[in-house]
Structures are given as structure tokens and as C-alpha cells.
């Protein structure tokens, strides 16, 4: 065996850095969509690497649903501070107050779908021509079809059947006024790769990913955290469990799993033996077989 080959994590890292540099070179005003979740943390870290010792040429854009875990916001502000980059915030509450969208009603109401309008409005407001996301193809069947450079029309819509072919390392980011792109540097990473990488690079992540005690209710086969935004049914009981989160979305829809994994090593071990997909605990994806595809067509992340 000759020594001139990269292991798979180094190859994925190199590919992501390549994509991020292409974004910087091909677009005027690109931003990183930052949710505070592990995938956007990895993308932000890779961007830092790609342009070091210069500052990354991207602002962070957070679409704030108002239904956040307080820990995520705290983490976000600390990170933005340490990187010295600009933070842009699109507020779903503002979109509701402006009458752009209406709050969903009922027990399973969420602000998940409402984010689309806020995101697209924010893209327009700041004249963003490329929004870099932490989406991965292994997450969901509609995402399995995503390109690294994914075109959005002037309505922000994705047309999965009419995508630009993407060959070799040649990414076509040409666009007309009013259109924009989404770029996905970690397309080829799996959940396991992300955790192995976070562990290898010893990246800081929100405490929510580690096992901790929390008041929760059992809903839709997952432990949903108790918060001011949750309406309890008469038969729902609050209990205290030792849980952690595999993904971070809105506090209203992100289910935790019972876990003892309180270090990165333990998380890596736990994820490698998981028998359920990470999105299995997200009620936003359980709405229908095409839930993700439908939202993505409209302009979702």
C-alpha cells in the first residue's frame, strides 16, 4: 500500500473545503445557514479551515423560529463572537407579525413550515445569492437527489426533476437576477461521519447533544422536551428522563432519546449502534412520505 492516499474523513473534508472555496469564488454574497445544530457547526468549522488564516468570507444566517432551545442561541452567539463574522437573523415571529404567514393551530402546530417564507424573505432582503447548508444526502430520500450546487428559481423553489447535471468537480453556479443557490458542502457525509469528525477535531457543540436530565413528555414515539411552547394534552404526563438529542430543530418538534452518552466518544459509540435514523425522532418528517420533498420544493433548507 503506498502512503499517498487519504482516509475517508480526510477525503470528505477536502471535498467540503473545495466546495466552500468554489462558493466563495462563484458568488457575490454567500452566507452559511446556521441552525446551531451539529451539521451547520461542522460546515462553519470547515469554512474556517478553508480560508485560514483569513476570516471566512461568509456571514452566518439564522432563521429564528422563536421556538429555540435557549442553549442553541447561547452557543450561536458565542461562536459568532469568536469567529468575528456577521450574524444575520430572519425572524419567523416577525413574518407572523407582518402577516406574511399564519401560525399553525392545534396540538401538533409547529413553525417548521413557516420558516420557508422567512428564509426566502431574508434571502431577498440581504440579496443573498448562495445559502450554504449542512444538508446531507443520507438524511432523507429527497435529499439523496441534491446537488452540491442546487439551483433555486426566482420563487426560491427547487425543481428536483430538472436539476443541472453535476460532473467531476465542475460546479455551475451561474444564475439570473432574483434566483439563488443552495450549496451543500457535506452532501456526502453520513451522520456517523459527522460524529467521527466532531470527535476527531474535538469541536464544541451545544450541551443538548450530551446526555442530561430534562423534563419531557412522550409524544409521537419520542421524548419531547417540556417548554413554554408546548400544549399538554389531558393524558400527557411530564416526567424527568436522562436524554440527549440526535438532531436539533425547534424545541416543539425535536424528540430526545434516552441515553447515557455524555462524552463525544460515547456519542460516537452510541450512534454506531443506532438502529433508527436520526430523523425518526423529528415529527416534521413524519407528516407524510413526501414531507421533506414537498417542503424542499417550496424552498426549505
Amino acid at each position: 500500500m503506498n502512503k499517498y492516499y487519504l482516509n475517508y474523513l480526510d477525503e470528505l473534508e477536502s471535498e467540503a473545503i473545495f466546495v466552500l472555496r468554489e462558493v466563495a469564488a462563484q458568488f457575490e454574497n454567500p452566507v452559511i445557514l446556521f441552525s446551531g445544530g451539529k451539521d451547520s457547526i461542522v460546515v462553519t468549522y470547515l469554512a474556517q479551515k478553508a480560508f485560514y488564516p483569513a476570516k471566512m468570507p461568509f456571514a452566518l444566517l439564522h432563521v429564528d423560529t422563536g421556538h429555540n432551545f435557549p442553549e442553541t442561541i447561547e452557543f450561536r452567539d458565542k461562536l459568532v463572537n469568536s469567529l468575528g463574522v456577521q450574524l444575520l437573523v430572519g425572524s419567523v415571529q416577525d413574518s407572523i407579525d407582518d402577516g406574511r404567514v399564519a401560525e399553525e393551530k392545534g396540538k401538533n402546530a409547529s413553525r417548521n413550515v413557516l420558516q420557508i417564507t422567512t428564509l426566502l424573505d431574508t434571502v431577498e432582503k440581504y440579496k443573498i445569492d448562495c445559502a450554504i447548508g449542512g444538508g446531507r444526502r443520507d438524511e432523507e430520500k429527497a435529499r439523496a437527489k441534491e446537488r452540491f450546487f442546487s439551483h433555486r428559481d426566482e420563487f426560491g423553489q427547487w425543481d428536483p426533476k430538472n436539476q443541472r447535471p453535476e460532473l467531476w468537480n465542475l460546479f455551475n453556479g451561474k444564475q439570473f437576477k432574483g434566483e439563488h443557490f443552495r450549496a451543500f458542502p457535506i452532501s456526502n457525509w453520513t451522520e456517523m461521519d459527522v460524529w467521527n469528525y466532531i470527535n476527531r477535531e474535538q469541536l464544541a457543540i451545544p450541551s443538548l447533544y450530551f446526555a442530561h436530565e430534562r423534563e419531557v413528555i412522550w409524544r409521537d414515539d419520542a421524548w419531547i422536551p417540556l417548554s413554554e411552547h408546548i400544549k399538554l394534552d389531558a393524558n400527557e404526563v411530564v416526567s424527568t428522563k436522562r436524554i440527549r438529542f440526535r438532531t436539533l430543530g425547534d424545541i416543539t418538534i425535536t424528540g430526545g432519546i434516552e441515553s447515557e452518552a455524555d462524552t463525544l466518544e460515547k456519542i460516537v459509540d452510541e450512534v454506531s449502534t443506532m438502529r433508527l435514523t436520526e430523523r425518526g425522532n423529528r415529527s416534521d418528517d413524519k407528516r407524510s412520505e413526501s414531507a421533506m420533498e414537498d417542503r424542499k420544493r417550496e424552498g426549505y433548507f
Partner: peptide, 15 residues
């Protein structure tokens, strides 16, 4: 199948 779909798996030897 209409478009290219990417899928991932890992064995102890390779990704």
C-alpha cells in the same frame, strides 16, 4: 429512477 440518487454504506473495511 429519474435522477442520480446517492446512497451510503460503510463496512469495517471501507466507506
Amino acid at each position: 429512477t429519474i435522477d442520480v440518487a446517492y446512497r451510503y454504506f460503510t463496512t469495517p473495511k471501507r466507506k
